[in-house]
């Protein structure tokens, strides 16, 4: 699936949850269900700055020319949000990631997490993913 298609799928899933509490419960579920991150990748270099919770993001370019992400956080909601981003971006070509428009965040009602002053890192996470993609896009 393309980035666009996955985003639409997430928007569909969240649209079935009308209560905000259910949305967060779903995020928590996503966070809990994530594949564990390799401890070796939980380094200060992979730590995302500007978050009240600690978030690590790691990217790996595989032979298929696509970028694969893993992430972890000590806060479960943050981890769930990271999980959504991984679902959207992991396994995509770097060029598509660089050019991607992230409208699903707004559509599922998580925009408040996008504010740079919220220091919870969604914006920083997206930035970091794009940096990784930019670094690999030229290769």
């Amino acid at each position: 699936m393309t980035i666009e298609e996955i985003q639409n799928q997430i928007v569909d899933e969240f649209s079935m949850l009308d209560d905000w509490m259910d949305k967060y419960a779903y995020l928590i579920e996503i966070g809990n269900g994530m594949a564990p991150m390799d401890e070796a990748h939980k380094t200060d270099d992979n730590l995302i700055k500007g978050c009240q919770s600690r978030v690590w993001f790691y990217a790996e370019l595989r032979d298929d020319g696509r970028l694969y992400f893993t992430a972890d956080s000590d806060a479960i909601i943050t981890k769930g949000i990271a999980g959504l981003l991984i679902r959207v971006f992991s396994g995509q070509p770097p060029k598509d990631i660089v050019n991607a428009n992230l409208d699903f965040i707004d559509k599922i009602g998580l925009t408040q997490h996008l504010s740079p002053t919220r220091s919870n890192g969604l914006l920083s996470m997206v930035k970091q993913i794009k940096y990784y993609a930019l670094a690999y896009a030229g290769k």
Binding site: M21, Y24, I28, Q52, D74, A75, I76, T78
Partner: peptide
């Protein structure tokens, strides 16, 4: 077992 940020986020909502 819960992060303070998760708690604060949900209380805020």
């Amino acid at each position: 077992g819960m992060h303070h940020f998760d708690l604060g986020t949900l209380l805020d909502k």
